[in-house]
């Protein structure tokens, strides 16, 4: 049977569409010209300029503080939530599931404005702490979903096996459950970390004076700053992201080839 070529052509077109803007951006970060319209030779001047911008370093520091604390807290809360959702099948868990699921679909501007109003209403000082609270609120859901997916193809007879061999609940949690779920929890944590680093809209609403994160810094640079500098910053961020994805991919691939052996 001859297959239609439309799917192939669409796939190629979409991939070009995906990567063309990114490539143009990377290439232009090495352009000596201030303007993206003309090529005036290869240069690293924008990268050098970037390292002298103190605001960027400050924003990066803030971003990492928020991202790390968000990751840790949402990993703990999300894992426990996933366990509850998987282990029990009650009305409470149906409500719980809706509560976990809804933040995933609500547009971020709605989360942003509602959290802003909440913080204003209870009189919390806006800043890194409110950003952390906001980020954790949506990251918990992502971690819970990733871990829940992992739990669903988890073979629960190993828990009975551990019990059969004399382990109590505490031992099972530490010696069987946690090591086995570790890849899922780590994947959820990584997702939370990237989402936190990348979030602009919600952060924009709940940030306070001085609490500039990297996306907010980039936003104000796009609005007011010089494009070549953003090109350089974007390229660095893209490379870091590629490296992270590549590492994750590499690690999971190793695991898979072992399984086939």
């Amino acid at each position: 049977m001859k297959r239609s070529r439309i799917p192939l052509y669409t796939t190629i077109a979409v991939l070009v569409f995906f990567y063309l803007p990114i490539f143009v951006l990377i290439i232009h970060s090495f352009n000596a010209s201030r303007f993206s319209g003309s090529w005036e030779g290869f240069s690293l001047r924008w990268y050098i300029r970037l390292f002298t911008e103190r605001e960027i370093w400050y924003a990066l520091r803030n971003t990492l503080i928020v991202a790390f604390s968000t990751t840790v807290v949402s990993m703990v809360l999300g894992t426990i939530a996933a366990f509850a959702l998987h282990r029990f099948n009650t009305r409470l868990q149906r409500v719980h599931y809706t509560l976990i699921y809804t933040p995933l679909v609500v547009p971020d501007i709605l989360m942003g404005i509602s959290l802003l109003l909440f913080f204003v209403a209870i009189g919390v000082q806006l800043g890194l702490f409110t950003i952390f609270l906001a980020h954790t609120s949506f990251c918990v859901s992502y971690v819970a979903m990733v871990v829940l997916a992992r739990l669903q193809d988890f073979d629960f007879s190993v828990i009975e096996a551990a019990q059969d061999l004399g382990a109590n609940w505490w031992t099972i949690a530490w010696r069987v459950l946690l090591p086995l779920l570790a890849p899922g929890i780590a994947a959820g944590g990584l997702l939370a970390f990237t989402l936190s680093i990348d979030d602009f809209v919600i952060t924009f609403f709940v940030t306070g004076p001085g609490a500039t994160t990297l996306p907010i810094q980039i936003y104000s640079m796009i609005k007011h700053g010089s494009p070549p500098l953003i090109n350089a910053l974007s390229t660095i961020l893209l490379v870091v992201t590629f490296l992270i994805i590549w590492t994750v991919q590499h690690l999971t691939e190793d695991e898979r080839t072992h399984e086939n052996a």
Partner: peptide, 28 residues
């Protein structure tokens, strides 16, 4: 192919918008 589809999902939202702003720029 899946990896190529997922990479844009992992990269910064703002940067991807900015890339288009550069492309669509009057001198782009």
């Amino acid at each position: 192919l899946l990896l190529l589809t997922v990479i844009p999902f992992w990269t910064s939202f703002l940067i991807r918008i900015f890339a288009w702003k550069v492309l669509l720029h009057p001198d782009g």
